[in-house]
Design a protein around this nucleic acid. Structure first.
Lengths: 133, 133
DNA sequence: ATCATTGCAAATCTTTTGCACACCA
DNA sequence: TGGTGTGCAAAAGATTTGCAATGAT
């Protein structure tokens, strides 16, 4: 489908993720990359986010708000801690999966390809704000 | 927000989930409940799915395709096994979270409210189909 | 020169919302 | 009766796509 051709748009988007370590939604990527390429279209951003994810340069995750967010794929296997207050997303390096899970999947004859784990709650800052009220 | 009023539409939707144990998207619920209430609108379905989730009668999950799906909330805490072939979703009763995860969250001073875990891969049937090709 | 990629706009898909009317408590 | 719920249609938000022009190899 996508044949890794290097365009200034694609490079600019990828560089953005090399500088930022945050999770970014397509619209945010568009805003940020516009500083460098004012004429880049949102459609192009979507196509490149998809292409870069396909070739493993980005990692795409769909969150409960139904919006996809992307992050640089430089990291190891990891999971997410999502703040219900400020919507900030922090990576978790510890994978919580106990070995029994493999047995269960084997028993079901389910061939696992990947998994995801996300904890939702309140980060330190939002916790304090909550308690002040 | 929603004050648990009992209408025939709301009852019909809830009954649907008592008969079916599958995960259903809003559009599917609409199609199915129409057999019983032909004039029910999609908007009403959405509003009731939301209301029923709020009051704990249904459980809503947003999947990587960006679509929300619902299931009856009769079950205990559980997770999901999602087939990449047939899109079927099966519940996993085993929660994989190791105790170390709690320590990590404490260290981060993150107050966990809930978490989710999903394994994506191929169910027995789709595995066979794959291997035949 | 070829074919992927772009910009733009229109289209799609899921979900939400405004409004007048209907119906539950 | 009063306020929540409904149907309908329009709106909103995220993402995809058709097309002619552009640009990378």
């Amino acid at each position: 489908m996508y044949n890794h051709r290097s365009t200034k748009q694609r490079r600019a988007i990828l560089e953005l993720f090399n500088r930022q370590e945050k999770h970014l939604a397509a619209e945010e990527v568009h805003q940020l990359v516009r500083f460098q390429l004012p004429k880049i279209s949102l459609g192009t951003v979507y196509r490149n986010l998809e292409a870069l994810s396909e070739q493993g340069d980005l990692q795409k995750t769909v969150f409960p708000d139904g919006k996809a967010r992307f992050e640089g794929a430089k990291h190891e296997h990891h999971h997410h801690m999502v703040c219900l207050g400020c919507s900030n997303i922090v990576d978790i390096s510890l994978c919580p999966v106990r070995p029994e899970m493999k047995d269960l999947l084997n028993a079901e004859e389910f061939e696992a390809v990947y998994h995801r784990f996300e904890v939702f709650g309140y980060c330190r800052d939002c916790r304090e704000k909550k308690n002040r009220n």
